[in-house]
Write a protein that binds this DNA or RNA. Structure first.
Lengths: 350, 350
DNA sequence: GTCAAAATTTAAAACGTTTTCATTCGTCGA
DNA sequence: TCGACGAATGAAAACGTTTTAAATTTTGAC
């Protein structure tokens, strides 16, 4: 104990009443330990005795110590930040919000933060990823709405930067992902409509460039072909179409000849638009037509009569994304990190 | 030049092919200068000769030098990050997106980044702000949708943390803000409807807890009282009501007795919902009723017949927010930093 | 009791930058 | 010619943490 008590609170806090933020040194001085020991104790290193560890933790809590993330980052090279990418013009609608909520839950007890990286000034969705990597703004990346040949996936695989996405690309390049089994969703949804006696089915598809559009189409077509039933696939609208336009489209379609009497709606907004549109055309749910919808919140449970739903738990998906990305960051050579989440079917299947 | 060339690239890069990221030292070695000089040259300090400054900049560009933000932050205490807060359950719809775009533009040529701070795990919207301050995750905060007694504003004023918000609180506590003149918007919009010969006007208000709801109501009521005209204020819906519910509400209202024939829609979604709803009830725009809408994108310019619009440039507001926040950060005692943006009226006023 | 091994703790260097203070070098007035 | 001055550059400390290597204390076997 030579000169451990330097005049730390001298005349140098006249600039701001910043109350000399506590550091490891503060704790060390109070506890009569070395900074090293305090650091180790706080990070629960094995070689520290239980007693010191507890004492250090207690002091830290009492004086409200928070580690300086800049110093940690400088030393370790890790930012303790996970970023989620937003497409150039994607808006954070309920979809991403639920996923973010799940990610935030997965990060809750860790030292990691979630930041949302908007991508407003660049034209391609890969530029935001490049920017993050170049400036080392995060330790890992999450993004959604993958395409079969996704430029982001390619870039990240090339640079070896940790990432995981919600959705898959084509199968030739394996990469970490969490995806929902949209094939089964569409297959079971279609079979349900058929089982209910519907004779012409249709599906509101996602935008064609997205991978999961293929999955839904595949599941739909498989069930349609097995049953040899009539179907139609709207070209003018998709899941990203604004709700009123969708409503008007469906209303117009219902008034025409050979209108469909069974709808697959892989999203709540499209389901509500379909109900409104059919209602505009004088059709009654359950009597004149049926819907099977994908539900991600509890929006549809209010409806009377009830529509058949298949649940997709986006919050759970977000938790998996967060958990698996951390796994990937801390152990770069875990092989083949992926997960396919099963649909949760809310009606009897036979 | 004693021993400036240490064996920097020894055996220590076997962990990762990280290509020894260039640092100030790298540049210094190449240029035959001291690290100090390089640092000064890059930050354009006055005492560096023009020649050295240019040379250093050139080398930095050539080897792709990027400053280590963690080191900068550790040394200066500044994070070079601006955060925009999202409400607990607010979704980033077109509204926030435009503002973020403007902020990003204002930050473009500076060293600042914009990050979006979601607030999913806390229940009140003030917790996200607290979290950011405690962990010093940003140098300044931006948020929107202020309330008359806004807990975030109070917290930030108390702690002296730099912030600026889009929208005002009550007038008793001055604080930095950028706001749109919603009084004038509503006043002129109402007068326009009256000038067009409408005899019963109505307005879709924002949620009552938000400050700018009062401003719109005030402008509306002022014009209504001046003209002594009939009016009504819907209680069951507001600007946050989902579009189909709004449409159905308006359609139902149009069918009833003494329905309004003039609508103030302070948002594009509500304007479209009003048109659809009136159309459902068999009413024709411009013939049976008129609308004055606030437009923030170019969504409404497509419509036939045209609706009268008053423009609010959210991107410009974002730019002002970013610019003024930087001003506030770099000079904490600028007094009374605020801006009231005038409506841009797209019809002849008389 | 002694000595080596194990269990703890510590000193010091390092991460990459900024900043304070000192140094060099030419230039100019006397 | 001398010293002083200003311009330009440099050396070294510091920010708060982690980590390597070393020092100290404790333990256990003989």
């Amino acid at each position: 104990m030579s000169e451990s008590s330097r005049p730390q609170r001298g005349e140098n806090l006249d600039t701001m009443p910043k109350r000399g933020k506590p550091t490891l040194r503060t704790i060390a001085t109070i506890a009569g330990l070395a900074v090293t020991t305090v650091s180790r104790a706080l990070s629960d290193a094995p070689q520290i005795s239980l007693e010191t560890r507890q004492r250090v933790h207690r002091i830290a809590r009492e004086i409200g110590y928070l580690p300086d993330r800049a110093a940690q980052r400088l030393k370790t090279g890790r930012t303790n930040v996970i970023a989620i990418l937003l497409d150039s013009h994607e808006e954070v609608v309920g979809f991403s919000t639920s996923i973010m909520y799940g990610i935030a839950k997965a990060l809750k007890e860790t030292s990691y933060h979630l930041v949302v990286a908007p991508n407003f000034l660049s034209t391609t969705n890969v530029e935001a990823a490049e920017y993050i990597i170049r400036n080392h703004l995060a330790d890992g990346l999450i993004f959604t709405r993958t395409e079969p040949l996704d430029a982001r996936v390619r870039l990240l695989l090339e640079t070896g930067f940790p990432f995981i996405c919600h959705g898959r690309t084509e199968f030739s390049t394996p990469h970490p992902y969490v995806d929902y089994d949209n094939f089964t969703f569409a297959y079971e949804a279609t079979r349900r409509l058929i089982a209910k006696g519907r004779r012409k089915v249709t599906v509101i598809l996602p935008p064609k460039r997205l991978t999961f559009c293929q999955h839904i189409l595949h599941g739909f077509m498989t069930a349609v072909r097995e049953a040899g039933i009539a179907y139609e696939i709207p070209e003018a609208v998709d899941l990203d179409t604004p709700a009123d336009l969708l409503r008007d489209f469906i209303s117009a379609r219902a008034a025409a000849l050979e209108a469909p009497d069974g709808f697959i709606c892989p999203g709540e907004v499209s389901a509500l638009a379909a109900i409104s549109g059919m209602s505009d055309a004088g059709r009654t749910l359950a009597t004149d037509y049926d819907i099977v919808a994908k539900e991600t919140s509890r929006l549809l449970t209010q409806l009377q009569p009830k529509v058949d739903t298949i649940h997709e738990d986006l919050t759970a998906a977000g938790e998996d994304l967060g958990r698996m990305l951390l796994q990937r960051i801390n152990n770069p050579d875990v092989a083949d990190l992926h997960l396919l989440l099963p649909p949760q079917i809310n009606f009897p299947i036979g």
